[in-house]
Design a binder for these strands. Structure first.
Lengths: 347, 347
DNA sequence: TTGAAAGCGCTAACAT
DNA sequence: ATGTTAGCGCTTTCAA
């Protein structure tokens, strides 16, 4: 084991010039070798390769970016609500896989669905001249992105559509998926269903709420029978909301929880009350171990891997010169029936 | 909503020179303003600010890096096994929080515990001249990092100690935590305990296995009574391994599963066999919803948030000139007793 | 307080 | 097939 300590720089970092000097060639020849260009004799290639190895030369990608025609940084900016959220983490991994195949690194950042933080992080990406942006945005106006688009930077919105911008997007049909989930509950005879939703600053929360409300109306139920609690920002808030909800006079017999953390909070609340087998639950987003719970949780599952992959593919297609009009790709969600969503109403 | 499409660059991106020209000042003055340096009159500041706004000028951080004395890119490289793993995702988020406070962006990459991929990704970080590296490594030799350290780049190892390098590290005491978990099972009278472990290419897997084995030996049990199954690389493999294990003549009465995915695979296998209440389980790493399972899962929980925070703090301390000898910080793990680990042996 | 010139490490354009 | 020169957008150095 080495005992040397990090006492700051030892030998200065080798540059392309150092390599050229050691190999006794011009710097352009070194450039040709490290970029695998043609018109280099095998002997040259070897001499340069030797010098590169001796000096442990690592080309400075940023310096190349500055001079290169295409100005590529070989970096992407990915913004999600949080790298720590399982849904976003799956998107993140899918994006990384595609990016890696294109020699591209990924900056990952978490907005916490805070419009100010969101903007700060995007500016940071732009200042670093990322080749493309993959963004999960709040509903706040983000027209400020237009300028960056005009510079030619591909921008793809994931999970939620853009606001005030015509741009590529990869999303789930949240309205339809929520309506489907709601109809599933209606089909089992429920007439008092509660919707528990995320912050309405988030576009998908609005869509899911609409899908729920319209499905309830279409079933000919009065709005009063079914309720909606919005702006639940954490598992904790969801838990409290459900606990309160179940204590009212005629409590709901079924819950539609419109996001993974909300679903978990609701399940905890029902457990606390011993109602997990008495109240039906359908959640939006799949949850790890949902099948091992008692009852197993029925969910409307999105496909984050597909969403991430398609979004990254779109970015690289644009970088490769695709000039088709912006398009929105809809990734299907699917209902996974496990048990919690098939509990009939008690009364 | 705008209808313009992304037809490649419109007006070219404004540079510091464009701003200077529009404001009728020298570029150094613009530089002073955007970097908030002193010695600029208020009038100048405003004139420049106006031009910046008109042109929507965004300084090119990479260009500055090239010339600046400190050479900082204001970017960090974070390598974990996968951004998609809940443990790593929690580390990732903690690192991001610290980095953001230092105006620094985070490249996040997933090694899949593959030494070749690991090296490729680190080279990519180095080529981008990140200010610091936070790495979760396999046990493969990584002496090649020494050169980068000598260039002054702070490197902090997270979750697993470095191999062939004296360097900062932030880890859990895996040996002790595994021994503790094993003693917990022994305390309930188990004499046939199975260890189900991750790939031995991973240092922590080796440590946990050692902790298990030593605790078994210290209890005066013959090695034969307790078994170890290693190199389980997925939930699926763990599930199969446990299924087989339970079909032998004298099957174990307790399982120590040394990683989150392995724990989940084991739980599924026990369920399949209807043994979830008959065989004790203690898992390493906490699992979402572990408390809602039947039985709730007892785990030895690490603290990924603390690990990520301390690692990032260490990087920035080094960047701020800290020259203390490399140190290893040990973050405590704690046993969370929930039920599955307190099931007594049947025979 | 302000600005002109040089140069960071690389690639583009143009010799040879 | 190889090398020379200029210059990417900034900051540093130094002069005014």
């Amino acid at each position: 084991m080495s005992t040397s300590q990090p006492r700051g720089p030892g030998a200065p970092r080798a540059t392309i010039r150092d390599v050229a000097a050691l190999a006794g060639v011009g710097i352009k020849t070194v450039s040709r070798v490290i970029n695998n260009e043609g018109n280099v004799s095998p002997q040259m290639r070897e001499r340069v390769g030797f010098a590169v190895a001796v000096l442990k030369f690592q080309p400075h990608i940023g310096a190349g970016t500055l001079r290169r025609g295409d100005r590529k940084t070989y970096a992407l900016g990915l913004l999600t609500d949080s790298v720590d959220n399982p849904f976003s983490a799956a998107v993140n991994r899918a994006v990384e896989n595609v990016a890696m195949a294109h020699n591209t690194a990924v900056f990952a950042a978490s907005s916490d669905d805070d419009p100010a933080r969101e903007r700060t992080l995007i500016q940071a990406f732009i200042g670093r001249r990322v080749d493309g942006l993959i963004l999960t945005m709040t509903r706040s106006d983000h027209g400020y992105l237009q300028h960056e688009r005009e510079q030619g930077t591909p921008i793809v919105f994931v999970d939620r559509p853009p606001n005030g911008l015509m741009a590529d997007a990869v999303v789930t049909d949240n309205y339809e998926a929520a309506a489907l989930a709601t109809r599933h509950l209606l089909g089992f005879g429920h007439r008092r269903i509660a919707h528990l939703g995320d912050e309405l600053i988030i576009q998908t929360a609005v869509e899911r709420r609409r899908g729920f409300t319209d499905a309830i109306r279409a079933a000919g139920l009065s709005g009063g029978a079914s309720t909606s609690t919005d702006n639940l920002r954490s598992e904790h808030e969801a838990r409290r909301a459900v606990t309160e909800l179940m204590s009212i006079a005629e409590p709901p017999t079924a819950l539609f929880t419109s996001q993974n953390l909300v679903t978990i909070g609701a399940i905890r609340a029902l457990r606390d009350l011993g109602l997990q087998h008495g109240v039906a639950v359908v959640g939006f987003d799949d949850i790890d171990l949902a099948d091992l719970l008692d009852p197993p949780i029925t969910v409307m599952a999105q496909n984050p891997q597909a969403i991430g992959t398609l979004a990254a593919d779109r970015v690289f297609a644009r970088l490769d010169g695709d000039t088709d009009p912006p398009s929105t790709q809809v990734v299907p969600a699917r209902l996974i029936v496990r048990g919690s969503g098939e509990i009939p109403p008690l009364d």
